[in-house]
Design a protein around this nucleic acid. Structure first.
Length: 509
RNA sequence: GCCCCCAUCGUCUAGCGGUCCAGGACGCGGCCCUUUCAAGGCCGAAACACGGGUUCGAGUCCCGUUGGGGGCACCA
């Protein structure tokens, strides 16, 4: 069965990582079944609207590679409260049968129509208690240790006219009895109708609340599976009731368990990175993030113990049966590992390319063909050494600029003194000056032979050379590094190091 | 307070009544490889929250307890 799913964020800020997981599951379900996935912007709260948020949401989907079959196009974005146009937004005609508009503030007459329809058919009524009056009623209920549930009989005024400011509330029917929801993840969940509020459907400002808008839009847009956060479960019976009132067929419900932080609390800003872009800026790649998020609450099952997935594999193997019902803790350790795995799967070219913005940020602009080619040559040697793209800069900086003469402690080999180190470095320098060809393998062979001649262990000689040539004790493989650096640079740096070593030897003979 | 959800190694999970003295992955410890750091290979420690049922038999089904989480807006 082809699934049509949607992700419906409100433009109130950055796309949260928990929201991304919900979007991912919805997207995977749609792609797995050959159905459609689209984005709908739920901007019905005028107070919480954040300019630019919609743009950022679309950008996040782009970066993650979650393709859309529907969503706001350029024109619709431009006519939002603030101009939200995004270069990568959809053009007209790409909706594969999903009808727009995809921004709820552009659908106001539709909600109005269906709200009035409910009144006409006895499923809703007008009310106009002020926020203050409602707050007082809540306090009174609390004093009586009762759950506050607004009911028609509690209206302070029953003569609300259609032409005065008012809200439209749903009439929960029947008042007694129960309403149950059949959830793909939670199973059958039953609620007492007495616990269900006569929820406001249309606000006094003419905007719908989530409850009306989501039901109307999901139905009109042909949504087959509603995947959303766990926190919506308690209001789900209201939605079930609305479908029933309208006589529409319910979608399949799937309430995903929350994502928790390492402390077991719902993931929030306190836990560090929370928006997709923060992850991007911290050097995570979308392949890894998608893989990781998929595993947060989903497993292939059936004895399949695969952990590393490409997006294609996820699409093939994903199913709702594999989605678990318990909340999952976001484990940065595993994300880091997966990021390294997916980085290693990148081609050298691709890896080098993705490194560029991170190197630029670290003061290593890759702005010439020469520098780009240099990075490309280095790439295979640092790929398995970077877990996050931010790790690369300290591994490559000495390729792109001069280094300071290392401190003397770094130039003295393990279990050696300054004079012995100077002697060894001098021999190595001599070899570097004359050796041909100046390539990785032959150079290593020659240096190993030199070790034998000097009665030194490889680690002793190589440590001295490494520090002299790179200024660091942790580097990519030494001889590949030297070959890329080139004979002249190596010679220069070794000579400077040798001078420092000789002076030290004179001071402490 | 009321309502709802959840419960296997530290973490993500497999397990859909017997094949589980519970399997995989991350992390952790050890060994190997090794010029540093990684990557890789091998080995190891590590879990069915508790109490009642049901059953010939329960991690798997039911009930309760405890512990976590979520909801109770003219916010989504």
């Amino acid at each position: 069965m082809k699934a049509r799913t949607r992700f419906a964020p409100s433009p109130t800020g950055e796309l949260h990582i928990g929201g991304v997981r919900t979007a991912l599951f919805s997207w995977l379900l749609a792609r797995h079944t050959g159905g459609e996935f689209y984005v709908r912007i739920e901007d019905t709260d005028q107070d919480r609207y954040v300019p630019g948020a919609t743009r950022r949401i679309l950008e996040a989907f782009d970066w993650l590679g979650l393709t859309l079959d529907g969503g706001p196009d350029h024109e619709e974005l431009q006519t939002m409260r603030t101009n939200e146009d995004y270069p990568g937004a959809l053009d007209d005609g790409e909706y594969r049968g999903v009808p727009g508009p995809f921004v709820q503030s552009h659908r106001l007459p539709i909600y109005k129509h269906w709200a009035e329809w409910l009144i006409e058919h006895g499923y809703a009524y007008r009310a106009n208690e002020t926020p203050e009056e409602l707050a007082r009623m809540r306090e009174e209920a609390q004093a009586r240790k009762q759950t506050f549930v607004f009911r028609e009989e509690m209206r302070l005024r029953t003569d609300v006219r259609p032409d005065e400011p008012h809200v439209i509330r749903m009439r929960v029917l029947p008042r007694e009895g129960q309403t149950e929801i059949n959830d793909l993840i939670k199973g059958r969940v039953v609620f007492d109708n007495s616990q269900i509020d006569d929820q406001v459907l249309l606000k006094a400002d003419g905007f719908p609340t989530y409850h009306l808008a989501v039901v109307v839009d999901d139905h009109l847009q042909g949504v087959t599976h509603v995947l959303r956060g766990d926190d919506w479960l308690s209001s789900a019976p209201k939605h079930v009731l609305l479908y029933r009132y309208f006589g529409w067929q319910e979608p399949q419900w799937a309430h995903l368990p929350n994502v928790l932080g390492p402390d077991g609390k719902k993931l929030s800003k306190r836990h560090g990175a929370q928006s997709v872009f923060e992850f991007r800026d911290q050097g995570y790649i979308p392949e890894a993030l998608v893989n990781f998020l998929a595993l947060l609450g989903w497993a292939p099952g059936g004895g399949d113990e695969q952990n590393v997935f490409t997006v294609q594999e996820l699409i093939e193997k994903f199913s709702m049966e594999g989605v678990g019902s318990s909340p999952a803790v976001f484990d940065y350790n595993k994300l880091d590992w997966l990021n390294g795995v997916h980085i290693r799967r990148l081609s050298d070219e691709e890896f080098a390319h993705r490194l560029e913005p991170f190197l630029a940020r670290a003061g290593i602009p890759i702005d010439t063909p020469q520098r780009r080619e240099l990075l490309r040559r280095i790439a295979p040697h640092i790929k398995e050494r970077t877990k996050k793209l931010t790790d690369a800069a300290p591994l490559v900086d000495f390729f792109f600029g001069d280094i300071a003469v290392p401190p003397i402690e770094a130039l003295v080999g393990p279990k050696m003194d300054a004079p012995a180190s100077a002697h060894a470095l001098q021999a190595a320098l001599k070899l570097v000056e004359a050796f041909e060809p100046f390539d990785d393998q032959p150079l290593e062979q020659a240096m190993r032979q030199l070790c034998a001649e000097l009665h030194l262990k490889p680690t002793q000689l190589f440590t001295i050379i490494r520090n002299a040539v790179t200024g660091k004790s942790v580097t990519p493989p030494l001889f590949a590094t030297m070959a890329i650096l080139g004979r002249e640079t190596c010679r220069l740096r070794m000579r400077r190091a040798l001078e420092a070593l000789e002076q030290a030897a004179l001071r402490h003979p």
